[in-house]
Computed example of a mutant assay.
Amino acid sequence: MEKFKAGMVLGAAGDALGYRKGRWESCTSGKKIQEELASLGGLGTLKLDPDNWPLSDATLLHMTTAEALITDYWCLEDLYRELVRLYVEAMVSLQGRTPDPATMEGCVHLKPHNYLLAWHTPFNEKGSGFGAAAKAMCVGMRYWQSERLENLVEVSVEIGRMTHNHPTGFLGSLTTALFASYAIQGKPLVSWGRELLKVIPLAEEYCKKTIRHMAEYQENWFYFEAKWQFYVEEREIEKEEQNKPLFPDHYDADETDKTYKRWSSEGCPGRRGHDAPMIAYDALLAAGNDWTELCKRAMFHGGESEATGLIAGCLYGLMHGMSKVPSGLYQDLDKRERLEELGEALYKAASADKCLDNHLN
């Protein structure tokens, strides 16, 4: 349970650090951010509080998703209806926090009063952003057991396409949910990328079953898969026997920025559903259990650092807990109490599923 709480809290801390009230989120140079951080006294001296280090809209939507996942739904359609209701409400409360435009556009098409089609949104050519990926780790926490993979695939795809109805967007939510489940299962980190490539076809099968937008999906599906295939090959971890990722000898802030830019689709690292989880994953591979190193690579780079910080922080918490993280980064963190409650409730909901399965068997 402690690691579930750590996942929710450290995800939010990673977001607050990468966001820095919008200042670092919009900065294009990791080196500049790291120099500014040093002038503030370094990571260990920071005290994150709601006024100076607020959470961005990305964490608030992750929390909103978690709120729905801990309700007592009878079937997944009920869960989706609850999510639609909460997302529409959240759009009102996010005023002033500059929510991701694709999320806002997606939410406009949600229909809380339409019982059958509440969560069916049109295909969105611009729905390839990071927003779906950044709100889905809690799906992996709710359905973390390997025998729940089918639920995880379905729910992560559906919550993704409610707001980001484009394969690059909703395959991002599949990725972060899957990685969260792997973190809890204790799967070797180095295997996550290649395992993802085996699960993507299950998402395609699910989408075919729902017969929505398949022509548009097929046109855009290949990009996400190709980018991840390229990534695991670049790090030399695409085969089962490859257990040591290959990193450049000098992988400093400038080098990291260059690499991340190469993975991105329009020169802004972390802006899309494929590269936000990729940067977070790469940072985890490079950092091991070193929180400071993780922050350097996932929270303090040029690009959408609040999204990559949120994903990386959450996955780190699920794997390593909070013992190596300076307490100033979470003690007075915005919404800390609710984040811990959500972590605990997700743990209990996932455990109750397990008990129910045992009972039914």
Rank of each mutant, 00 (worst) to 15 (best):
E219K: 10
K348A: 15
T71R: 02
W228A: 04
R297H: 06
C107I: 15
L360R: 13
K5S: 01
C75G: 02
F179N: 02
G18F: 00
E238A: 11
L83V: 09
S327L: 05
A203L: 02
W24P: 01
D353P: 09
T59W: 05
E255H: 02
I279L: 07
G172E: 06
T65M: 14
E293G: 11
Q242A: 06
M278A: 12
Q331Y: 11
G30E: 03
T65K: 04
A58G: 12
L360Y: 13
G11Q: 00
E266R: 09
G343R: 03
N220L: 12
G273H: 12
P101C: 07
L60V: 08
L83K: 10
E255L: 00
D15V: 00
V9G: 00
Q331H: 15
C138K: 10
G14E: 00
K209F: 09
F224D: 07
E89L: 12
V325C: 02
L40W: 15
M8W: 05
A12M: 08
C27H: 10
E195R: 05
D332F: 15
F247C: 00
E240S: 08
S93N: 05
E25W: 10
V199Y: 06
E240L: 11
A287E: 02
G140P: 00
I237K: 01
W24K: 05
E241F: 04
T210K: 15
E341R: 06
F300G: 03
S128E: 07
D290V: 10
P248V: 06
A177L: 01
R148Y: 09
T121E: 09
L196A: 13
S323L: 08
L110I: 13
K258Y: 02
W144E: 00
G18L: 07
E216N: 13
A134Q: 14
E35S: 07
Q229M: 15
G160M: 09
G302I: 11
P245V: 08
W221Q: 10
N151R: 11
L94G: 10
R20W: 13
L284K: 01
G328W: 00
T256C: 04
Y182G: 09
D290E: 07
A102R: 02
L117P: 03
K335D: 07
M299K: 06
A352T: 12
Q185N: 11
I311R: 01
I311L: 05
G41N: 01
A183P: 08
Y206G: 02
A349E: 06
L76H: 06
K135H: 08
H250I: 14
L37R: 01
A58Q: 09
D100H: 14
A352Q: 15
L69V: 05
D249K: 14
M137W: 08
F179Y: 12
Q145D: 09
M319L: 13
G129Q: 10
D290A: 06
S265A: 09
